[in-house]
Design a protein around this nucleic acid. Structure first.
Lengths: 344, 344
DNA sequence: CTGTTAGCGCGTTCAT
DNA sequence: ATGAACGCGCTAACAG
């Protein structure tokens, strides 16, 4: 009854020594064949290869890494919310860039819990990841100073580190919303609302600031009535829209500060087609078909640049911290080009 | 000039021995403190902890794993196209499920290149990943038989393995399209088109078969004229729609076989609102707002079940291969409920 | 309660 | 061209 479905019989894994024994050579010779470095006669090489195949030998990278000073080929990407399509496109960019350099990506999530960040990072560092790419969520990253001094590149993505001098790759958040609002004011809008998550996060602060700045440029200084910075979890963004529309002087345009807010606003505006101008932050699938104007950028580029930065740090760790900014740009698709109603 | 921006000074990492020396104990005692297993007096424990902190000691998991027979805590997920949001949601499900068991996910991409699959897998196995979860792309996975016998759980996701007896977690593809088509035939449709990628992949074969079956149930046996199985890369799906609409008797309904095809069809149908019924495969953000009916399922569940299967195999490797099916269900949002025009 | 010995699988150093 | 010895960092198995 030696069936294919009999389940695996935990047989031991072959080692260099096993292969050497079978081929009648020393382990070291097998090592030379595997690494293709030392000089080995063609004949013994062939014999070793045959033995390795017969034993299904597979070099143990753990041992190899340990021997090499625990230098691995894995890079960690620490992310808050895996289900956010934005981060996943970032991850795709990282993965592809790392692959070019023979590095693999290990993905870890903090579930947007600030308290778990350090714990997750600690676990990764014990695995001796070669570099650390992360979207920070905790309010302090100074705990990474020691690791940085040990030579591990640490790159922050989407948001800069707090209390730590480190490389970062972020978006042109300020310019993004500022440009969007400028386009709206140019079309005659003045009562422009901004819906976003609470401004605790760096990105949201920057986007809010850009919004305010652009309105200030046309003389609108009191933007508070138009700002909705509650926690947006789908329905609440819709509620924000309703409360805005119920105002005595409702806004004629709305800008969303992130993709979740956009989603909520789009739902809420279904009942009011072509009345309110709308621009979202973050592009999404079929936004073109839906005619939704957005502040867009290349999420994968965020990941690529971060990965590239990590790789360059590995080759040359010295140098001042670098701060890369990924450009954002307004894509006009209709919803953002609805003109302000003429004052009557 | 010992500045914070002077770059990392590659100082050596502290080891158990270093900590022991500083604390005046043997390495083994330090090990005991770290693992919290052996019995250590509270006093020496405190001294060791202090020394570890001072030296910024971090246990080396590589060495630990090696010592433990190269048993790691990382599980690999091999994926074709990282930029497909579907797979990312699967990855999210995997990550969360693995985290419950103290396992990390390492993500590798084959870029949908069948030739690179074995190479990528080989690299992962050298890292001694604890288990292998994969969306197969190559036409043969028999090369994994050896590893399976070595006790590494191998779980196939979305598509079953070829030439290998192994666990799998797939969707109810057949039932998905069959249900969608049945709903359409119930609404009077008979000329129903099916747009998908080439039927080479298991999923597409199944979905095509479900489509044909449901039409056969109402007496439509010659579905060939309505099948468009070209490579769909956005524009070409749109072209397929155009060619369908240009027929003498154009279809009154269209079913898409995957998310990319859906996207193309939706774009192409913008010029023909409310004329053609449409149902897509795979749900997507804002499909509800757009009123698009889809055959939906929980992508994360695909990942969760696969991860759970892997974990259970780790605990008990014995047993026949398991094949899990994740249910699909039709979500009616409007586009799929457009009735067939009355014959006149 | 603590230390010593030994070895996980591999590759570098030095011989032969 | 090949082999022997040693050690990477850690932890079972034994002492004591």
């Amino acid at each position: 009854m030696s069936g294919a479905d009999a389940g695996p019989a935990t047989q031991p894994r072959a080692t260099l020594a096993d292969v050497g024994k079978l081929a009648g050579v020393s382990p070291k010779t097998v090592s030379r064949v595997m690494l293709e470095n030392g000089a080995v006669s063609a004949e013994t090489k062939e014999r070793v290869m045959a033995a390795a195949r017969a034993l299904r030998f597979r070099p143990n990278n753990l041992a190899r890494s340990l021997r090499h000073g625990s230098v691995t080929t894995t890079v960690a990407f620490v992310i808050g919310d895996l289900t956010n399509p934005f981060y996943f496109l970032v991850a795709a960019g990282i993965e592809r860039e790392l692959a070019k350099h023979g590095l693999m990506m290990i993905l870890a999530a903090t579930d947007d819990d600030p308290g778990s960040e350090a714990r997750v990072v600690e676990t990764l560092l014990k695995q001796r990841v070669r570099a650390l790419l992360m979207v920070p969520i905790a309010s302090d990253q100074s705990y990474l100073e020691g690791e940085r001094q040990l030579g591990t590149p640490v790159i922050f993505i989407d948001r800069p580190a707090k209390n730590l001098v480190a490389d970062s790759v972020v978006l042109q958040n300020f310019e993004g919303t500022a440009d969007a609002v400028r386009a709206l004011t140019a079309a005659g809008h003045r009562r422009i609302a901004f819906i976003c998550s609470p401004a605790g996060l760096y990105t949201h602060q920057q986007r809010l600031a850009g919004y305010r700045q652009a309105l200030r440029e046309v003389g609108v200084t009191d933007t508070a009535p138009w700002e909705r910075l509650e926690e947006v979890g789908g329905p609440s963004a819709a509620e924000s829209v309703e409360s805005l529309l119920a105002m005595d002087e409702p806004p004629t345009a709305i800008v969303a500060g992130n993709n979740k807010a956009s989603s909520g606003v789009i739902h809420a505006l279904r009942g009011h087609p072509d009345e309110i101008a709308f621009v979202g932050f973050d592009d999404f699938e079929l936004a073109d078909a839906a005619g939704i104007s957005v502040i867009a950028y290349d999420p994968a580029e965020l990941g690529r640049r971060a990965a590239r930065l990590a790789v360059s740090r590995l080759q040359d760790p010295i140098g001042p911290p670098q701060h890369v900014e990924i450009p954002t740009h307004l894509i006009a698709r209709g919803s953002g080009e609805i003109p302000a109603p003429s004052v009557g």
